[in-house]
Design a protein around this nucleic acid. Structure first.
Lengths: 198, 198
DNA sequence: GAAAGATAGTGAACAGCGTTTAATTTGTAA
DNA sequence: TTACAAATTAAACGCTGTTCACTATCTTTC
């Protein structure tokens, strides 16, 4: 009744585990995630999980990598818009994603790994990709600025949007109005961009 | 050789525990914090800790409350400055604090408690206090704006600064220049404020 | 001062966690 | 059919937060 070798390939098993983990994450939060629960959810023992993932942090990173891909996909449709609208649409999409996927968002930005384990390059790359997305409309809006200035402005502006998303997702903005976060990011973008005109 | 009732009062013990916890936190990170280590550090057993704190989250919240007080104290000296300088000084102080106390900062903003446990009012109050600190110079800079608008602008601007601090403390800004975070927050404040002139 | 009561303090226990490993089952190849 | 290799498991280790019966200590009362 145990040890079925050809039921699923390694990759299939990996996908099954990640999906089960994401389900648990969504339903019970990051605190409740555990290797044993994930293993039980796919009908395997804990030890088998360790043939698919190097350790628990590796598993979390793979979830985060998928989350980041989904986030980038959610932002993609706003590609062709006029620069300022594109920036606002990215920001609102960012906010919306954080609001709709609170647990995955939380795992993405709050998962602490032991200091000695470095975050995988793949994850960092996706974040860099996100910054790159912002640079394009920003460069269009500030044509006289050198690339380096655009780079810094993109990071500045997007850090700001990220900050709103973070505090908003934790209900730390102290504003009863649920739409205030949206107004805040569009306001931030408008003011910041207008500030460059002077 | 055990059970010394009059060596320390309840309050003394509580302070000892919090100090020991902060020391462990600073030296080994939030991951390494544990009730047993804290108890051992003050020469008591685990069970005794539970007479001082309702649970581990309560202990973390008390650490966070102290951290927040220290942060507010670090910002206090910039009270009297001209509005725009005050805002920048607050922002730089915020950044500096995050950089100098990375572990406490991390615990403050990333400690996840089981969802059913609500964050204590005391903590929320300190965050509200922080927002209030920003509203003053902002109101001076935008005298024609109604109080509600100032409130929202303070949250917007400070969320932005917070975002820079968060990404900066995690080295997710991808900027070799270590001073770039400082330039980013002052840039953010300047542009945002200038944006209001139009 | 002795007895009684209250409480600070203990340490073992429980259930859970991530992780490793010896042993076993399975599929494949000789 | 036998031998080998790989997948899978169960048990174990050391850790975690938390609880609880028990003991040692102090305080109060007689």
């Amino acid at each position: 009744m145990m040890a079925r070798r050809n039921d699923h390939s390694r990759d299939e098993l990996q996908q099954m585990a990640l999906q089960a983990a994401e389900r648990l994450l969504d339903e019970q939060g990051a605190e409740a995630l555990s290797t044993r629960k994930i293993a039980a959810a796919i009908g395997y023992s804990v030890g088998s999980l360790y043939q698919l993932f190097r350790n628990y942090d590796d598993l979390c990173w793979q979830i985060n990598s998928r989350t980041l891909q989904q986030l980038l996909q959610a932002l993609a449709p706003h590609d062709g818009k006029p620069p300022r609208e594109a920036l606002k649409a990215y920001a609102l999409g960012y906010l919306q994603f954080a609001g709709q996927q609170p647990q995955r968002w939380s795992l993405l930005f709050e998962h602490r790994s032991p200091a000695e384990l470095a975050t995988p390059v793949e994850l960092d790359g996706a974040i860099a990709q996100l910054f790159g997305l912002i640079e394009q409309p920003l460069a269009a809006l500030l044509p006289e600025q050198p690339a380096q200035e655009i780079e810094l402005a993109a990071r500045t502006l997007w850090s700001g949007v990220h900050g709103v998303a973070v505090l908003s997702s934790k209900d730390k903005l102290f504003h009863a109005d649920p739409g205030s976060a949206g107004r805040m990011v569009t306001d931030l973008i408008d003011r910041y961009l207008d500030g460059w005109r002077g």
